[in-house]
Design a binder for these strands. Structure first.
Lengths: 202, 202
DNA sequence: TGTACATCAGTGAACGCGCGTTCACTGATGTAC
DNA sequence: TGTACATCAGTGAACGCGCGTTCACTGATGTAC
């Protein structure tokens, strides 16, 4: 859907790109896909957007600001991937939870570098404020899907931790190729997901 | 136990450090702890080992070779952490599996940067051969602990995937600070571990 | 035990590279009147 | 509608930095005899 977005656009006269901030973020996403996190530099983003290397300084607070902006876009797409997958099939709570998790995996597989980036930040950064803002809605999607399975009077974090750990670990292990080159069947993980919260805790 | 190993050692005369390869790996581990993966450079390792920056070239095949060697040391420690934790308490299969997983978490918490490094490699690298060699014994520890829970005639990968995904995801989410600044109770994850492979699959 | 010599490990200077950042500039845009 | 002017976004040259790598070198070690 975003495919016809305009690329490079040297058409306008030299100054005033008009859309440079978004163009730089989009260039960053592409660079990320091509070369991973180390490829994310101000100069490369500027080059990819067809602009001089000093131009990004007018839009971002240094290279960390650029990274945070790209991560923000990543979180937005991550959330959409989850919601999109969850909206398929009958809307039982169990089905919805599995759909959200399938979306989690979809995003990891379709945009592995973006997935890497959004989970590469440590909680010690000063950027944590910005990132918390852009990441919170994504996490909330998963949390909401877990809610129906939280037993009365229990801390929701128990179920959330189980679900999130399971699906996140599986995604990470797939992306780093830890299951060997062959098939990576999702069934074992989704089956275990079926069991989480199924009985009132022994 | 490794603590009195000798540090810096300018004592010997200038040439022939005698132990430089190991000293560089140890320096790399420290750098990793201090500054994360980006801090891992040949020049910094050389400086930390008290040696000229061109010296490492005699011991490693470029910066990737150094990274691989440090990762190898990481896998060795990772394995020991798991075995060490598993050897505590009564040696039932279930208890052993939980011990291995506790060791997995211990390592992630005690050497987060090393944990990062060993799981940062993608399966596309030419180094995959070397890394497969150094990582295989670590993974085998986890695999062995899962074995008693594999139902007759089933692919072991089912149970392994469930266990590994769960514990790995939890470790990753802790390290990236995704559970908030507060407590990160292991109980939910270890409790779910108790259920894996407990019944003969519905 | 002593000498000659090959080998090897570390030195220090030098190279080119890509990076982030700064800075004076310039041309386009938008606004006041 | 037209003119003057402030503002803003992008330019291109320049800077210093840390990096990996190369290279002739040199001093220590180990071996042959």
């Amino acid at each position: 859907m975003h495919s016809g977005e305009m690329t490079k656009q040297k058409d306008k006269s030299k100054h005033h790109h008009g859309n440079l901030r978004e163009a730089l973020v989009e260039a960053g996403v592409e660079l990320l896909t091509e070369g991973g996190i180390p490829a994310l530099t101000l100069r490369k983003c500027a080059a990819k957007a067809g602009v001089s290397h000093a131009a990004p300084a007018h839009h971002f607070d240094g290279v960390e600001g650029l990274r945070a902006a790209i991560a923000g876009e990543g979180f937005r797409r991550f959330r959409l991937a989850m919601l999109n997958a969850a909206d398929k099939g009958p809307q039982t709570p169990r089905n919805r939870l599995k759909g959200i998790c399938r979306g989690y995996l979809d995003f990891a597989r379709q945009e592995p570098a973006l997935f890497d980036l959004i989970f590469s930040f440590r909680a010690n950064s000063k950027l944590i404020g910005d990132l918390a803002t852009s990441s919170a809605p994504s996490y909330q999607v998963l949390r909401d899907a877990c809610a129906p399975f939280v037993p009365e009077g229990t801390d929701p974090v128990v179920i959330e931790t189980q679900v999130w750990s399971l699906i996140h670990g599986y995604a990470q292990l797939i992306l780093t190729g830890r299951f060997g080159a062959g098939s990576t069947p999702d069934e074992p993980v989704l089956a275990l997901l079926d069991q989480i919260g199924a009985r009132p805790a022994p």
